[in-house]
């Protein structure tokens, strides 16, 4: 049965897989790829950067943060089992 346990102790690999991929890959994917249609049409700027470019820079930190969350809540305790 698939259930989230808040990452407190992902004992079942199958149950852990869903939220790990959603947070670690799904969130960066939405921020990087799916955001393009929303940002591509704008002419706004932030400091010296066009908004889409500035957003992409923010994604560097976001991607790192998403992986860090998955690592801290789950993968830190895993071995080399992928």
């Amino acid at each position: 049965m698939e259930k989230e346990n808040g990452g407190a102790g992902l004992r079942e690999p199958a149950a852990g897989q869903g939220w790990r991929v959603a947070v670690g890959l799904g969130v960066p994917f939405c921020a990087i790829v799916l955001a393009i249609p929303f940002l591509g049409g704008t002419r706004m700027t932030v400091a010296a950067f066009p908004l889409p470019v500035f957003w992409m820079f923010c994604c560097f930190i976001l991607a790192s943060l998403c992986m860090a969350i998955v690592w801290t809540l789950s993968d830190r305790r895993r071995g080399d089992d992928g």
Partner: peptide, 17 residues
């Protein structure tokens, strides 16, 4: 800039898994 930075930054979380 969008596709160039986008593919590198997406490759990292993909590579994470």
């Amino acid at each position: 800039v969008l596709w160039f930075l986008g593919y590198i930054v997406l490759a990292y979380p993909l590579g994470y898994f």
